[in-house]
Design a protein around this nucleic acid. Sequence first.
DNA 1: TATGAATGAGTCTTCATTCAT
DNA 2: GATGAATGAAGACTCATTCAT
Lengths: 209, 209, 209, 209
Amino acid sequence: MQTKECADAASHEPSGGLRAAQREFTRRRFVEAAVTVFAEKGYVETTIDDILRRAGASKATFYVYYDNKANLLLDALAPYRCEYAVLVRQFQQLVEPTLADFESWISDYVDLYSEHRLLLGAMHQAEVFEPEFRGRTIEAVRNYIDMWDKIKLIETSKEPRDLLELRCVLLYSQIQRFMYVWQLEGLEIDRSSAVCEIAAAWYRIIKSA
Amino acid sequence: MQTKECADAASHEPSGGLRAAQREFTRRRFVEAAVTVFAEKGYVETTIDDILRRAGASKATFYVYYDNKANLLLDALAPYRCEYAVLVRQFQQLVEPTLADFESWISDYVDLYSEHRLLLGAMHQAEVFEPEFRGRTIEAVRNYIDMWDKIKLIETSKEPRDLLELRCVLLYSQIQRFMYVWQLEGLEIDRSSAVCEIAAAWYRIIKSA
Amino acid sequence: MQTKECADAASHEPSGGLRAAQREFTRRRFVEAAVTVFAEKGYVETTIDDILRRAGASKATFYVYYDNKANLLLDALAPYRCEYAVLVRQFQQLVEPTLADFESWISDYVDLYSEHRLLLGAMHQAEVFEPEFRGRTIEAVRNYIDMWDKIKLIETSKEPRDLLELRCVLLYSQIQRFMYVWQLEGLEIDRSSAVCEIAAAWYRIIKSA
Amino acid sequence: MQTKECADAASHEPSGGLRAAQREFTRRRFVEAAVTVFAEKGYVETTIDDILRRAGASKATFYVYYDNKANLLLDALAPYRCEYAVLVRQFQQLVEPTLADFESWISDYVDLYSEHRLLLGAMHQAEVFEPEFRGRTIEAVRNYIDMWDKIKLIETSKEPRDLLELRCVLLYSQIQRFMYVWQLEGLEIDRSSAVCEIAAAWYRIIKSA
DNA sequence: TATGAATGAGTCTTCATTCAT
DNA sequence: GATGAATGAAGACTCATTCAT
């Protein structure tokens, strides 16, 4: 699902010479090592040394590239964030979305999530105790409300804005935790039913508005 | 809201002699210290030493009572867990619940959650990286499904069981994350609207069934 | 030359029980190890590990007792500082000091300095780059001026106070650096001549006043 | 105060071609950067990287020019050392110096010192823990004695040579430490009084001889 | 000549846990 | 039952220095 516009986010595609390529190569090794080790041991239990060992690099080299583990995770997340941003933009371009539109969008989102699930698991852990990551939740909620806001459904509604925002928060909460329980805690879920049910809930917000 | 049947969970009320009372006294000091410090610094940042200092106890004493920090948290959570269990039982005794029933129940749950919010925050952190706590999520989900199961709505429904379970998971996800975002991340929410909206969603599951 | 009143500074004499004695014992081991290693490698080159190895203690133990190397040095210097303070008090009690008084005092000071010379060497190094030690020089100068001030020679003099203070600074500078060059750089010096010459310079300050 | 004969010491004036000029240019950049950074952070706290960053040069380039930080400091000190050497020669040419001669010389020395004070501060730090710099003190003392020796006052004196040397050491100690306390520790001192007092002490050595 | 990527070797610091008293 | 001295083990981070380009 790697879209063209996110290739750069993934790779910091070296524009220039050999040096740049070399640098990019190393950076990518760190990212790959991190992804692997985070997947194995989770973010918390992973030490910088673990990543180093996997990447076959030395401690000092790590600090040339990153300030700390959180930093590296952020870098590793870049592709996901970019692709998610693309999805958000697509959502915002929906005009009078149908149930099918929502199903299709959610399906894409599920794909994206499951593609990056282990990294997202690491991110959830980081959110708990990396200062850099804490407080992102609120931001994410606002982003989500924003996403709905842009499709002009909120402001044109007869319902009070506060109520609509509350519903957004509830939808956000639902999908977030659900994805986590499903993709990361391994609860068995029937994919298409899930997409349908969530889409239905999303659609209801429009109908009621 | 401390119900009578949970007093014991909170205190391990000493049945017996002086020794037991003394022991109970010390245990309670640890729990109180833990609650305070977890509230201040969060579970992750809190060291056993922090708790000790607050409790005015010594290192070794701690290990007489608990194996580790997670253990102590579990102990501190006992009152919450007990009261939550009471709530669950009340839910299961609902017969043909009305919207008002759900609103009332959810309202009680919100009370319970907010009463223990800081401790629950600690718990969320612990879930991320304490082996003892990991995997509790699935269990919690199953419990939740069970709760609904007992009110006989699932099994008497015409809808396939899988779908009803899925809806439970979605409701569970929704309220869990919502409570977290509201109570712990500090998102401003209108309480009564929230209760109404959630209750409505819960009620819908019955109607549709 | 260990005076009675400084025994405590040296040892933190345990007033109490076994525990206190044990603690004091360990602390003293650290101090002794530090003195030895500082003498061997100088303060700068000495790592905490070096001291640990010599003391036969573990890293963690060190941090139970001290926050850092500078802290330990400060502790090790306590006896010297105490004895120096005694000397200062003796100086201040001189009434109409004679040349012989100065000679005697300086001689004592030389004894004290040479008794602690290696530790004082470490201190000089620490003054260069331990924040805790930086800025002590000015303080030491003021102390020295104070010492002269107390013998009432400054204030009763016809000379302006500023000039007398300047002379004090010059005397301070002279003896400080001289002791360093002699005792720590190993320049060969005839002790009694040195004492005489310095005393003469000190005496001149009174005469001229 | 840059005398003509020291211009070379400052610049290693390129005699030859373009290459040499280029080389000299880079070297000077390092020196300037070093002076600035040493002044800001002191010698100890300054890392080679700091200097590099300031000079806008790269790691490897540094090692083309210098072996280490101490080396660079030595290079940066060249102008000072040269000018000091000039002063020393002037001193040695004094014939039957008067009090005014000494005052004038000391005044020049104060100028020189304060012009280079921050670099001299760096040097004092380096003396503490750079092998290259350690042991320079003794050498400096001997140089100072030598300076007095050359004016033939020592050898023609009736006093024993040892005593005269001792007095030199005391004068050396005095002015060294005094300059440090004054110029680098920031003790407030009246310049002309200081010059007078020191000169008086120097003059006394002649009189007594 | 100039560079910057890579590193070895080291240092400080923290914390949960044990054991003799 | 309570204590606090001691520690093992690990982790984060820094810096001078080298080497291929």
